[in-house]
């Protein structure tokens, strides 16, 4: 996977955030805005990782607990919780994360293969990892993260 990406030398800005113990990142151009969690309406019978739906300026947005989606438990409630509003294939989706960390300037060349310690994440969800200062950051493959599971529906 890293070879594929290594071919490109495009620098892009990432948003990094905490999920449980680890730091994850997604490209900032996917993120329309970051909002605080607010009231939402639970959707019964929805997949476990879907918290519910909320109103975002007149749009009904599906809220996804990114921790649950990645099979890392659930987001721990705190005042630092944030919702990343992303535009994925024309649909606006809110991703609940534990805490926004920073932004990172990233080049595809920095991407390394996955270490075994991160393999407990839902398979296929990561594009790879890279170093940011002291920390290791895992880059999420948003298509894979948000793709519907096959057995769903």
């Amino acid at each position: 996977m890293s070879e594929e990406l290594g071919g490109r030398d495009e620098r892009q800005l990432l948003i990094t955030f905490d999920l449980g113990e680890s730091v994850f990142a997604i490209p900032s151009d996917l993120v329309q805005e970051v909002v605080k969690p607010s009231l939402y309406t639970p959707v019964h019978h929805a997949p476990e990782y879907v918290l519910g739906i909320r109103n975002l300026r007149g749009r009904v947005v599906t809220l996804v607990d990114l921790c649950r989606r990645l099979e890392l438990g659930a987001v721990t409630e705190s005042g630092d919780n944030r919702v990343l509003i992303v535009d994925w294939q024309g649909e606006t989706i809110g991703l609940l994360v534990d805490r926004i960390v920073d932004t990172a300037d990233f080049s595809a060349q920095d991407l390394k293969p996955l270490p075994p310690s991160l393999l407990n994440v839902r398979s296929g969800s990561l594009s790879g990892i890279f170093r940011q200062g002291e920390r290791t950051v895992a880059l999420l493959d948003m298509d894979s993260v948000l793709q519907l599971d096959k057995h769903q529906n």
């Binding site: 959707v43 019978h45 929805a46 997949p47 879907v50 739906i53 749009r59 009904v60 947005v61 599906t62 996804v64 294939q89 649909e91 989706i93 948000l146 519907l148 769903q152 529906n153």
Partner: peptide, 11 residues
């Protein structure tokens, strides 16, 4: 009426 997102399609 507003449609539900793809993750809620089967409902």
């Amino acid at each position: 009426v507003k449609p539900l997102g793809r993750h809620l399609e089967g409902l």
